[in-house]
Structures are given as C-alpha cells and as structure tokens.
Amino acid sequence: MKALLVAIAMLIAAPALADSSLPPAYWAYRQLPNASQEARAQRLMAELRCLVCQGQSIADSDAELAADMRDLVRRRIADGEQPAAIRAWLIERYGTWISYRPTAEPATWPLWLAPIALLAIGLLLLRKRIRTRARP
C-alpha cells in the first residue's frame, strides 16, 4: 500500500518537471570510496559553476547537468586524473566562466593585485597619521 502511494506521489510529481526520466548518473549522489579522492573531487566540484542554475556550484546544485558533471568529475578523479587537468578540460569547452577560482591568466592579474594595492594605498595615506618614531 505504502509503495503504491509512493508510486502515485511520484507519478503526480513527474510531469511537473522538465527533467529527464532517467535516474541520476551513478556517482552523482555517491561518494568515492577513497576518502582522499572524494575530498579532492569535492574541492573541485565546489569550484565549478553549474551551467543551468549559474549561481551555484555543481556541488550545490540539483540540476541534472550538474549531477552528470559530478559523475564525470568523480569518475576522472577515481581514474587518477588531476583536478587541475579536469578543470582545464572543462574550461577548454565552456570558457573560464565555469571556474569559480579565477585562473592565472593576465586578465585576472589586477584582481590578485587589488588587495596588495589597496593595502599599499592605505599605508601610504596613513604614514602621516601615525607617529612611528618614539617621542624623545
């Protein structure tokens, strides 16, 4: 009886969603058995933008494409591929936008310089406000 009710609830629910009827990929909602591999995969997934919701990482998204990407990331990590290589492979296809971690290309240099520049400007403005030499 319970099973039937569950089935009915799912039937009502199914047409409401513009999603496929296929189940999620195997590694989309499972962890890799090797804990350090899983940690590496998790770190990478948290830094990849979901292309469907666009405001979330694939680690935080329920979209199917994000689930399939998680499957892809976990499989490749399990095959021994480096996270950096997987990120580069995805950037080659979708552009740098997919990576929440700004890459090291020249367009991002001002971004990494900004905090240092701000600190320097601040210290420069401060230099007359604080007496650095002890008063006799």
Binding site: L22, A25, L51, V52, E64, L65, D68, M69, D71, L72, L90, E92, R93, Y94
Partner: peptide, 14 residues
C-alpha cells in the same frame, strides 16, 4: 548520451 557525457565534451549546456 545517457549521462550527458558527449554533451559536456561538446561544451553544450542545454
């Protein structure tokens, strides 16, 4: 393409 693998390989997002 049951797990969107080719779709991702092509850089397609929808």
């Amino acid at each position: 393409d049951e797990q969107s693998a080719l779709q991702i390989a092509l850089g397609s997002s929808g």
